[in-house]
């Protein structure tokens, strides 16, 4: 069975490490914050100027002066700090953020990512996405493996306008975990109950398949969304 959005986030949370500074994009990546493993300390960076983003506020603690990059009201954890947008992107472009998780329309074998613009549809802007992928040390893309018509979003070459080039390292989809090594995607894991054949059929890019492709392991399976 393919993973839900929450389950994709849960699988990505296994890539977190104690002491990481992490930037989460809008959509599925935001959900990763709900699955930080117990006993692990992670600081979330929000590019509008907050390091140490906490959960959403309550009616009592809501503050219009405190939002995240998705313009949602949030809280700050103990040890958080605030700073300007220039400082924020110095952290991002300067390679100080340990892990960046973001969504995408398409990725390809060159490590290119397209995530901000679909020609013919209204262009809303790239926000901070181009800066986030430009020199991040470690990027994980969270996305659906194929579109609703079953067409692959893991391509030989992206067809949509790019957000950045040669930057994708790992992709977690509703079907699989893929790692890009020397210009080729390697199939690392498959979603529980999903066959290698299904993954291959929904992957346009060349795929290296090891003899044994383990199923993803979840300590407790997220059942929030379907």
């Amino acid at each position: 069975m393919s993973l839900s959005r929450d389950q994709i986030a849960q699988r990505i949370s296994q890539e977190l490490r104690d002491g990481y500074y992490v930037n989460l994009g809008i959509g599925i990546p935001t959900l990763v914050a709900n699955y930080v493993p117990e006993g692990m300390s992670v600081m979330f960076q929000s590019e509008n100027g907050l390091l140490g983003m906490g959960p959403f506020p309550t009616e009592k603690t809501i503050d219009p002066d405190l939002i995240n990059a998705g313009k949602q009201t949030v809280t700050a954890v103990t040890g958080a700090c605030y700073f300007s947008s220039a400082e924020s992107f110095a952290m991002i472009r300067g390679g100080h953020v340990d892990l960046t998780v973001l969504g995408a329309f398409e990725v390809d074998s060159q490590g290119n990512i397209a995530s901000w613009m679909i020609p013919g549809k209204l262009v809303k802007g790239m926000g901070g996405a181009m800066d986030l992928v430009a020199s991040a040390r470690n990027i994980i893309v969270a996305m659906a493996h194929a579109n609703k018509a079953g067409e692959s979003k893991i391509l030989k070459a992206c067809t949509l306008p790019l957000t950045g080039i040669h930057c994708v390292k790992k992709v977690v989809t509703d079907l699989a975990v893929l790692e890009l090594k020397e210009g080729v995607f390697h199939l690392l894991e498959r979603a529980p109950g999903v066959s290698v054949e299904e993954i291959v059929s929904k992957t346009e890019a060349p795929l290296v398949i090891p003899e044994n492709v383990p199923e993803m392991v979840f300590s407790h399976f997220a059942t929030l969304a379907t």
Binding site: S85, R93, N112, M126, G128, M130, A134, L162, I165, H166
Partner: peptide
Amino acid sequence: PQGTLAEKIRAGGAGIPAFFTPTGYGTM
């Protein structure tokens, strides 16, 4: 791009006419 916008403004106030950034290379 947001970081480029922030830096363009920062540079403007700081007397730096232009700068090289990795952001957006290879894109529109």
